[in-house]
Design a protein around this nucleic acid. Structure first.
Lengths: 156, 156
DNA sequence: TCTAAAATCACCCGAAAGGATGACGACATC
DNA sequence: GATGTCGTCATCCTTTCGGGTGATTTTAGA
């Protein structure tokens, strides 16, 4: 995580350097300092948002694994079907929270690339999670994994 | 996380300091646009981070003790849910019976080859049916097609 | 503080899937 | 007979998936 700050520093440095460079070539002529500032502002605001999302993402997915609720299933389940995930089964299969998260995104029909973009990781990482969860589910394809996941009550 | 903000602040400070330093050493020309830009950059990066934290700061991490408890559910047959396929929707989408048949097999997690073997046609034919039904469902992948099919009531 | 698990990322390779297009025969309908 | 739909099959090409391996970083828990 420290790495992000480092990256930030580097990017900032490079940006400032390049800005200095281009400054002396184009921008300064038109004295559009406001535009220049706005550009930097937008750029860094976006970068900051990204960084904020990235460093907090892991915080929210922290260990919410074992919150086994002692829920009594009503005799006549209401129609909305809240879907309580079968955490016990997930435990016995050794499927991590992250893996299940990827699996749900797979079930929504997303490609590895789309999943990667959505949770801010590389496509390779998504593939790794997929491979692991496929192995744990005994599935050879993502469609099969989704089917198994629904059978086992891991997915709604 | 506080630590990271701290580090971030430090890096930012160093950046500004070095900028100032170099500013006063070499580029003492009247315009300090770089410093201005750097300041804006840092300011808005911080703002972005704050924003990112804010928009994702919903639930605190909850940690509870593990109490895996088997609850005896009042025996209620899950109500097999006869599942009447939404034929009307199928009609409006122009999905043929054969295509829906292939789609259900896709939903079961079978590969094109397995489907071909099961319904005694060539793999190419399966691919053609798949392509057609994907097009009609507006899906790019089979997982997406399955998801759409369930949403539309075409699949159980 | 040390250790094990989890998460991250990369690279390679082969297989599977998907897109585009064309073709052919069966069958129904006009 | 002409037309249209459906099912069948093919080829070429590109993209995506999946398996395997190895590595580093982060986190949790003892």
């Amino acid at each position: 995580m420290r790495r992000h700050v480092l990256i930030f520093g580097l990017v900032g440095g490079v940006l400032v350097a390049s800005l200095q460079y281009t400054e002396y070539r184009f921008v300064v002529i038109e004295h559009s300092v406001e535009l220049y500032g706005a550009l930097i502002a937008i750029l860094f605001a976006a970068f900051g948002i990204w960084l904020g999302l990235r460093i907090t993402r892991r915080r929210e997915t922290i260990r919410e694994t074992v919150v086994v609720k002692e829920v009594l299933v009503p005799a006549v389940p209401p129609t909305p079907e809240p879907f309580s995930p079968n955490t016990a089964r997930q435990q016995t299969l050794g499927i991590t929270a992250r893996e299940l998260e990827i699996l749900t995104l797979v079930a929504r029909g997303l490609s590895n690339r789309e999943i990667a973009a959505q949770i801010f990781v590389s496509e390779n990482t998504v593939k790794t999670h997929c491979a692991r969860v496929f192995d744990k589910l005994g599935a050879a394809r993502r469609t099969q994994a989704v089917q198994r996941g629904k059978e086992l009550g891991l997915l709604p």
